[in-house]
Nucleic acid binder design. Structure first.
Lengths: 203, 203
DNA sequence: CAGCATTGTTGGCACCGCCTACATTCGGGG
DNA sequence: CCCCGAATGTAGGCGGTGCCAACAATGCTG
């Protein structure tokens, strides 16, 4: 079937997979030029499509950003699950997880910012909330496991997870903000997890 | 001198204090409608001035944001210094500082985001870097003091400060992102500082 | 294969940031 | 004291944006 090229080298009227193309382009732009430089019209241009076409797939610029955040959560979730090795002893296990998180946050800084942006709340999108849960799950599992084995103090595991995650996110945020060199953040992971487990006070 | 009212109830040609007015308006808008809704033209309108007038005081929208960030650092610095009581024992002292930071970050969420935005780097503005140093100083002082008294493990105080600050910032970020209720963040401060000092492992 | 839902296109609206040319006012040196 | 340059504000225009409505092509399904 020789494809119905009318006469010109015209693309088919329907793009075929605009939604994915837009998301991919958006992520590339995000990485290369930052959130601020993201424009629906520009994306449409790159995709070789009219400026209103994106509107068929995302009612809003914000809708696209939300979808992008979702992609981010999926990818982060995968990275974390892939990095978790339940056979490792607690400290090493946590370190691996932390390193994975920091690595992701360093080379997806803009995307991560989007994921944390407090703008989805109105509708919450539910899908997004689920994605967050899945992501947090990896960490929570480690904490809960360690608690059962008595390797971690008692207390609401959700709360402990929160604090642990917060510390991670804080480091990531500093790295993203330039207060901490990315390599320093990665290299320091081990020491930092040690600190988290043993505290600042001398034993 | 009866003021040269030409005939109308016209404001004086020169506003008198446009720069401050703009900054104040910007902060209000930031708080009420978020960063995205901030427009130079709108600010000009609110100040009763033409749309190009702000350009005389801020070469750029980014320049205004930088100035705003500076204001934020000043205010945060004051809050922290005001909250630090060197006579308190370590844990209470840290808790007070942490609570001050969390309180600030909760009711200046948008402003804080601006302060952390990694967009000043090109010129760094120097003034801004100094402001950051001053802010971090409060925390670093506490850590260093405690170290001298042997209440905190040895190690580069700057590094320990960084980790401590990161944890703080992480909690703040979670509170801002809605993953943690603001009151919960504030109420949990004490417990959280305890965790930071004693670690997750049982003693 | 007819008709309807989906997906794109064109054009227009209001707004934005930034620029340039021009107007007014202020303040300091002759 | 006054005059002229520096600061500050104004008017208008340019290219860009997001969003919307009306219309066109296509795909799918009964």
């Amino acid at each position: 079937m020789p494809a119905s090229r009318p006469t010109q080298e015209s693309r088919p009227y329907h793009h075929g997979d605009l939604r994915s193309t837009l998301l991919a382009g958006a992520e590339r732009t995000l990485r290369e030029k930052g959130t601020g430089a993201l424009s629906l019209r520009e994306l449409a241009r790159e995709a070789g499509v009219s400026h209103a076409a994106p509107g068929r797939h995302f009612k809003d610029k914000q809708a696209l950003l939300n979808a992008l955040a979702l992609v981010g959560y999926d990818r982060l979730g995968q990275a974390l699950e892939g990095a978790d090795d339940p056979t490792l002893p607690l400290e090493k296990r946590l370190t691996a997880l932390a390193r994975a998180y920091l690595a992701f946050s360093i080379d997806n800084a803009e995307l991560l910012e989007l994921m944390y942006a407090r703008k989805h709340e109105p509708d919450a999108s539910e899908q997004l909330a689920a994605a967050v849960d899945r992501t947090v799950g990896s960490l929570e599992r480690v904490i809960a496991d360690a608690q059962e084995r008595g390797e971690i103090i008692a207390g609401d595991p959700q709360y402990l997870t929160l604090v642990t995650g917060a510390t991670l996110q804080g480091i990531a945020s500093f790295a993203a903000g330039g207060m901490l060199a990315p390599e320093a953040a990665l290299d320091g992971t081990e020491e930092f997890v040690h600190l988290l487990l043993h505290g600042l006070k001398p034993r």
